[in-house]
Simulated scan of single mutants.
Amino acid sequence: MAGRLLFSSLRQVQKLQKACIHGRSRIGNREVVGFGYNGQCSYQDRIDFPMPAIRFKESTSDIVALREKEKGDWRKLTLEEKKALYRASFCMTFSEINAPTGEWKSILGIACLFISLGLWIVVLEKFFVYKDLPPSFSEESKKAQLKRMIDLRVNPIEGISSKYDYEKGEWKK
């Protein structure tokens, strides 16, 4: 008895959850016309999946009358009625979806702002954070250090000393 009561209460909870997630409470009076993207009752204007699960607008008396008239000869419909039927089912046309939005301008502007901010930080660090280079980084000091390494024959097998000809006193070619 308790198991049956628990099972029936779980079934009611599932029905409530299903109604809240996929039911009429979320889509209102809009007509479900297909499976949709991923089987959800939602509307999205997508190029890769052009058939949404529900219509864009809720059914009103005008739209219902146009849908009844639509079932007959389409040549009897005016251009405005055809457009109204289309706009009741879809929000945008393919050309409206593909139209440029100009969003790239703001993205480029923000990217340039961050790049310039980074460059200013590098320049300010160079002036205020980093100290002057030690004297061992000068050209004369580097040449003297290289001469000392050759004189001491540092790493004569694969290193700098292996590339120096001691008999001629010059670099090997």
Rank of each mutant, 00 (worst) to 15 (best):
residue 4 R to E: 13
residue 6 L to K: 11
residue 6 L to N: 07
residue 7 F to R: 10
residue 8 S to L: 14
residue 15 K to H: 12
residue 16 L to R: 05
residue 21 I to D: 02
residue 26 R to Q: 03
residue 27 I to R: 01
residue 30 R to D: 03
residue 31 E to N: 08
residue 32 V to G: 02
residue 32 V to M: 02
residue 33 V to Y: 05
residue 35 F to A: 07
residue 40 Q to H: 12
residue 47 I to T: 11
residue 49 F to V: 14
residue 50 P to N: 08
residue 54 I to V: 01
residue 55 R to M: 07
residue 58 E to R: 01
residue 63 I to D: 03
residue 63 I to W: 06
residue 64 V to Q: 05
residue 68 E to T: 13
residue 71 K to M: 15
residue 74 W to Q: 15
residue 79 L to P: 15
residue 82 K to N: 06
residue 83 K to G: 01
residue 83 K to L: 08
residue 85 L to V: 04
residue 91 C to Q: 01
residue 91 C to Y: 01
residue 93 T to S: 02
residue 94 F to C: 12
residue 94 F to M: 12
residue 96 E to W: 00
residue 97 I to D: 01
residue 98 N to I: 10
residue 108 L to Y: 09
residue 111 A to M: 09
residue 111 A to S: 14
residue 112 C to D: 15
residue 115 I to Q: 11
residue 117 L to C: 07
residue 121 I to N: 00
residue 122 V to W: 01
residue 125 E to M: 11
residue 125 E to W: 07
residue 126 K to P: 06
residue 128 F to V: 02
residue 130 Y to F: 02
residue 132 D to V: 13
residue 133 L to G: 09
residue 134 P to K: 14
residue 136 S to R: 13
residue 138 S to L: 14
residue 138 S to W: 15
residue 138 S to Q: 12
residue 141 S to R: 09
residue 141 S to D: 10
residue 141 S to H: 10
residue 142 K to Y: 12
residue 142 K to C: 07
residue 142 K to D: 14
residue 143 K to H: 06
residue 143 K to N: 05
residue 144 A to C: 03
residue 144 A to W: 03
residue 148 R to V: 05
residue 150 I to G: 05
residue 154 V to T: 03
residue 154 V to D: 08
residue 160 I to A: 05
residue 161 S to T: 06
residue 167 E to L: 11
residue 167 E to W: 11
residue 169 G to Y: 06
